[in-house]
Write a protein that binds this DNA or RNA. Structure first.
Length: 926
RNA sequence: GGACCCGUAGCUCAGUUGGUUAGAGCGCUUCCUUGACAUGGAAGAGGUCACAAGUUCGAGUCUUGUCGGGUCCACCA
């Protein structure tokens, strides 16, 4: 064995072992209660970053702990196809070949995407393995697996059938770079220093008069179809109902009155552009205004923009402003800061854009999700995130789910326009192979047909899910929409599938059950659903957490998880978010390479309170601790007899004769175990790690092992030492799995993985207050004597003697540890006495009520020593007076709880004794 | 505009329902290497808990306000 912990070989070895032996495989097993978890499936585009490392480590700690506690744990790993993000990656590759997706076409692009996925899709999974995530790797899923696709389509059809999915022309967030619609959540609003342009709109009948409107986006004025003022605004009463001449395009537009307009803002007159602003769109509907789209999907102005056609929107803005200036219609440009939406994938400025999209009606889904929270079925840790969740649900808006990209789940709707004069419906249906529907035998997937009378735009039977197209002898053109899990069948009858794909989150929100094979398989879903906990970052509460809850309730009838732990964001030392573009990211793989995965895990967690600020040197604590565990284990293993190793020492300990250090360390272990148990119960991870760190390093290594090192040939000492190490290794395993697994194998208790061993049991009988008190005295005495050496610069090899005086019973408890004290504090001769002999020129002091003297004639400055003693005495006297004052306060005595008063009294007595002892010592010194 | 979080040692942070002398790691100072570990051991210095007022017998902890830092949400063009 080497002296330094060789984490690289060990970690590689156990990673492989765990995977090859399916150590974390979860089988439905009625004997064991399940503990299944949900963790964000990383994007296939992803490489492991610190957020993943934190996220997975937290989850892994809980899962390993629960597994050791005897639960059948299921942690489903996998990746998300991440529609826009992944397509962007592949499109960038294309761009290098000077091609666009439109050049190569849909099929070819998808081929490239799948090839890319095959090549890089496992990257992040392999990296998750490296940090020790104990996932059931056999179950690795992808959101575009066949079964998963089926679940997505099933969900779409089911919601469509319920009338919760609709298609319509609305203003959505449009990313001109990705050329797709986005949901409201995918638009990131950032404050932006922009300008507010004041523009004159002349009256048609009197070009000398005008209204001034203020806008931040003058380029959209080409699509204006009205100007609106507040009906109560006295300034504009005379204008309401008049007609203006829209500059540049010279379109006649009315002045309308609408309550929406805020008279305080700008001029109180607002240009109305229904095709390019959600408020204007709403106004347009209220006032029957025309919507004029002035932009191409790529953000260039279209033919409606006349002479500005073909110019990019921002160039057009400048050009139009310049042009207005020339026309003397630009009143002024004011500084104006406002929030501008950006695409969350490529950060391009989003355009509010009128287009036909698919939406999910969210209110009916949000209400049960709110109710579930109110009923306490889900719980956020920390609790404050509850408000973020409920706030969003209470103000929910419909979800735009169609994306004009190609990578993803294509919308399972087939469409055809037919003229029903041609045939009667029954014949038509028979031709399409719908005979089973005619019999009323609906397929389980519940194919939904919706027919819209194109002539008047009316749905013929929007709600009838048992649609029988019985419209007979009707003339006209109908749009037929079929939502079905598999509609390929209809293509030969001229139906075409909707070209759009679904929002990535429309598949992610099914993760907790779609991964178990729902709706096809039942065994695993029944056993492992609902899961228990979810670990994630606050950023995706809306995107994912809330929606999973909705989907869980809607499709499984039950919330998908109970505990939602929201962890902080990993930031750099300056508090900035870690990001590739900022170049401030610390690569977890680099840390694993340099410090080890155990170090990465331990360091991240011990630093995790709220947001985590890290720099590279933070990982030393974990590396050093792993090394400490390794070396302490070596020490024990070097000295242990195989016979001790073979029995289960914890059960055969002779506690009474075990000696003070043994009683103490066993007692300390119990306290630590209880702290860790309760900390994990409450998801207080850093608290658990701190307790472990303090115990193993501060108690076990620094004191216990140092004390028993010389006695390690004694089988009884071996038993205790082995037992404590063995228990500690179990206790530490969830936090620091690799080194503990390695040590475990050397303990030779079992060949199975440590992760399958039982979690330590709380043993009340090992708790021992007396031992802890006695040890505390011993440790303090040792420190104080060492301090004397350091203070008076006494060389390590220089012999010193010490006299300790106290009452007989106290001396007895010290005498047991007499030799230990000598060796630990470097005392050659130790005298224990009930009488205080005259001790001139001694370094001295008081521990508890023990007085000690170290004669150092010629070495110490006795005046300085006495001064120090008096100072120390003074401090105790101050403390004494403080408590004395409190205890003489009748209010305190009357109102403070009894135990607090008692504590103070005890403390006062201790201080009295201490001060008296110190004074005795001082008088002894002369 | 609304909501939330943070301000404790030089740095990064713990400090759970108010109750002894406010803790840890890193950094710093001094000392220590043949027997687990220098990724180590021993000892030490370092804090008016951002500020102010209030509640209380008692406040780092609760309330309010101020200042400073951060996050999220929001259709005032």
């Amino acid at each position: 064995m080497s002296t330094r912990f060789n984490f690289k070989d060990v970690e590689t070895k156990w990673c492989r072992f765990w995977e090859d032996n399916h150590i974390f495989h979860a089988e439905p097993n009625p004997e064991k209660p399940p503990y299944s978890v949900v963790i964000p499936p990383p994007n296939v585009t992803g490489i492991l970053h610190m957020g993943h490392a934190l996220n997975n480590t937290l989850q892994d700690i809980i899962v390993r702990h629960k597994r050791m506690c005897g639960h059948e744990t299921c942690w489903m790993p996998g990746t998300d196809h991440a529609g826009i993000a992944t397509q962007n990656v592949v499109e960038k590759q294309l761009a290098k070949e000077k091609k666009t997706r439109y050049d190569i076409g849909r099929e070819a692009l998808l081929e490239r995407l799948w090839a890319w996925k095959q090549q890089y899709g496992d990257t992040i999974i392999n990296q998750l393995k490296k940090i020790g995530s104990s996932c059931d790797w056999d179950r690795t899923r992808f959101t575009m697996d066949d079964d998963y696709n089926h679940a997505v389509r099933h969900v779409f059809v089911s919601l469509y059938k319920k009338g919760l999915i609709y298609q319509g022309q609305y203003i959505i967030n449009w990313c001109p770079r990705c050329q797709t619609a986005l949901s409201d959540e995918e638009a990131e609003h950032q404050d932006h220093q922009g300008s507010l342009y004041y523009i004159h709109y002349p009256l048609k009948d009197n070009p000398l008069k005008h209204l001034t409107v203020a806008t931040t986006r003058p380029e959209t004025m080409l699509g204006d179809t009205a100007v609106a003022v507040n009906p109560n605004d006295p300034r504009y009463q005379e204008f309401i109902g008049t007609t203006l001449l829209l500059p540049i395009v010279n379109r006649e537009i009315p002045v309308i009155a609408d309550e929406f307009v805020n008279p305080e803002f700008g001029t109180g007159a607002v240009k109305v552009t229904p095709a390019h602003d959600p408020n204007d769109f709403a106004m347009g509907r209220r006032h029957n205004l025309e919507s004029i789209n002035v932009m191409h999907p790529d953000g260039r102005m279209n033919d409606e923009a006349g002479e500005f056609s073909g110019i990019d929107r921002f160039e057009a803005r400048e050009a139009i402003v310049e042009f207005l200036g020339k026309l003397k219609l630009l009143e002024k440009i004011a500084e104006h800061s406002h929030a501008v939406g950006h695409c969350y994938r490529c950060h391009t400025v989003i355009e509010p854009y009128l287009s036909k999209q698919w939406f999910v009606r969210m209110k009916p889904l949000a209400e049960p999700a709110l109710k579930a929270f109110e009923e306490g079925k889900i719980k956020f840790y920390p609790d404050r995130w509850s408000k973020v969740y409920t706030g969003w649900l209470e103000n929910i808006r419909d979800w735009c789910i169609s994306r004009q990209i190609w990578w993803g789940h294509r919308i399972p709707v087939w469409h055809k326009q037919v003229s029903l004069t041609e045939k009667n419906w029954t014949d038509q249906l028979l031709e399409w192979g719908w005979d089973s529907y005619l019999d009323g035998n609906w397929k389980e997937d519940g194919t939904v047909v919706r027919i819209i009378h194109t002539d008047n735009g009316q749905e013929v039977n929007p709600q009838d899910d048992r649609l029988m197209p019985i419209v007979k002898d009707t003339e006209g053109i109908y749009d037929i929409y079929i939502a079905t899990v598999d509609g390929k069948h209809f293509e030969k009858y001229g139906f075409t599938q909707d070209p759009d794909v679904l929002d990535t989150w429309f598949s992610s929100w099914l993760w907790p059950f779609a991964t178990f094979g729902w709706p096809k398989e039942h065994k695993d879903t029944d056993f492992f659903y609902p899961t228990q906990s979810l670990f994630t970052a606050s950023e995706i509460i809306f995107f994912w957490v809330a929606r999973m809850i909705m989907a869980g309730i809607e499709f499984m009838g039950e919330v998908p998880f109970r505990d939602i732990f929201i962890h902080g964001t990993v930031r750099d030392a300056q508090g900035r978010k870690m990001s590739k573009s900022l170049g401030n990211a610390i690569d977890p793989l680099e840390i694993i390479d340099e410090y080890g995965a155990d170090a990465l895990r331990f360091s991240l967690i011990i630093n995790s309170g709220q947001d985590i600020y890290i720099s590279k040197d933070k990982f030393e604590i974990g590396r050093n601790f792993a090394n400490k565990i390794w070396n302490a284990s070596r020490l024990v293993l070097m000295n242990i007899q195989p016979s001790v190793q073979k029995e289960n020492p914890l059960n055969v300990l002779d506690l009474k004769n075990a000696g003070l250090p043994a009683q103490w360390i066993l007692s300390r272990f119990q306290t630590t175990l209880e702290t860790v148990n309760s900390a994990l119960e409450q998801f207080r991870f850093s608290e658990a790690e701190n307790a472990i760190y303090d115990f193993f390093w501060g108690n076990f290594c620094d004191w216990y092992l140092e004390l028993v090192k010389p006695d390690l040939e004694d089988p009884n000492v071996q038993k205790v030492t082995f037992a404590v190490l063995e228990q500690s290794i179990r206790l530490m395993h969830p936090f620091i799995p690799f080194v503990t697994e390695e040590v475990w194998q050397h303990l030779e208790i079992s060949n199975d993985s440590l992760s399958h061993q039982p979690w330590p049991m709380v043993r009340e009988d090992y708790k021992n207050q007396t031992a802890e008190t006695q040890m505390r005295t011993f440790m303090e005495l040792t420190s104080v004597l060492r301090n004397i050496r350091a203070q008076w610069n006494i060389k390590p090899n220089q012999k010193i003697t010490c006299v300790i005086t106290a009452d007989a019973p106290e001396l007895e408890s010290i005498s047991e540890m007499r030799e230990k004290l000598q060796s630990m504090a470097g005392i050659e001769k130790l005298e224990l006495s009930t009488e205080t002999p005259p001790m001139k020129d001694s370094a001295s002091g008081v521990v508890g009520t023990l007085k000690f003297f170290v004669p150092l004639n010629g070495i110490i400055d006795i005046h300085q020593e006495k001064l120090r003693m008096r100072q120390e005495c003074g401090e105790f006297q101050n403390a004494y007076q403080g408590i004395q004052k409190r205890l003489s306060n009748t209010q305190f005595l009357a109102k403070a709880p009894q135990d607090v008063v008692e504590k103070d009294k005890t403390r006062l007595n201790q201080l009295t004794e201490k001060i008296k002892a110190l004074e005795d010592v001082l008088s002894t010194l002369g």
